Simulated scan of single mutants.
Amino acid sequence: MSSLAERHQYIINKLKKEGNVNVFDLCSELEVSSVTIRKDLKLLEDKDLLYRTHGGATLSNPYTVDRSVNEKEKIKSGEKTVIGEAAAQLIQPNDCILIASGTTVASLAKSIQPVGSLTVITAALNVALELIHHPDIEVIQLGGMLRKSSSSVTGLYGEKMLEDFSCSKLFLGVDGIDLEFGLTTTNMMEAQLNRKMIKASQKTIVLADSTKFGKRGFGKICGLEEIEEIITDAGVSNHMVETLTSMGIQVTIV
Results as ranks from 00 to 15, higher is better:
90 L>P: 09
13 N>A: 15
129 L>C: 08
206 V>M: 00
144 G>L: 07
169 K>T: 06
162 L>E: 04
187 N>V: 08
159 E>W: 01
49 L>W: 08
121 I>G: 13
200 A>L: 04
66 D>G: 07
78 G>A: 09
194 N>H: 08
223 G>M: 06
59 L>D: 12
27 C>E: 15
10 Y>T: 13
26 L>V: 06
201 S>W: 05
77 S>N: 11
55 G>D: 14
254 V>G: 07
184 T>V: 08
151 S>G: 03
106 A>L: 10
65 V>Y: 02
180 E>L: 07
90 L>T: 12
148 K>G: 03
243 T>I: 05
186 T>Y: 00
164 D>F: 06
185 T>N: 00
152 S>G: 13
89 Q>M: 09
150 S>H: 00
182 G>S: 06
202 Q>M: 05
37 I>V: 15
254 V>S: 07
221 I>A: 00
150 S>G: 03
102 G>D: 00
77 S>A: 14
144 G>V: 01
26 L>D: 11
241 V>C: 10
70 N>G: 09
199 K>Q: 12
99 I>C: 11
150 S>C: 02
141 Q>M: 12
217 G>D: 01
40 D>Q: 13
114 P>M: 06
107 S>R: 02
239 H>G: 04
36 T>Y: 11
49 L>A: 13
81 T>M: 10
225 E>R: 14
2 S>E: 08
119 T>E: 12
178 D>Y: 00
83 I>G: 03
187 N>H: 08
63 Y>M: 01
24 F>T: 14
168 S>A: 03
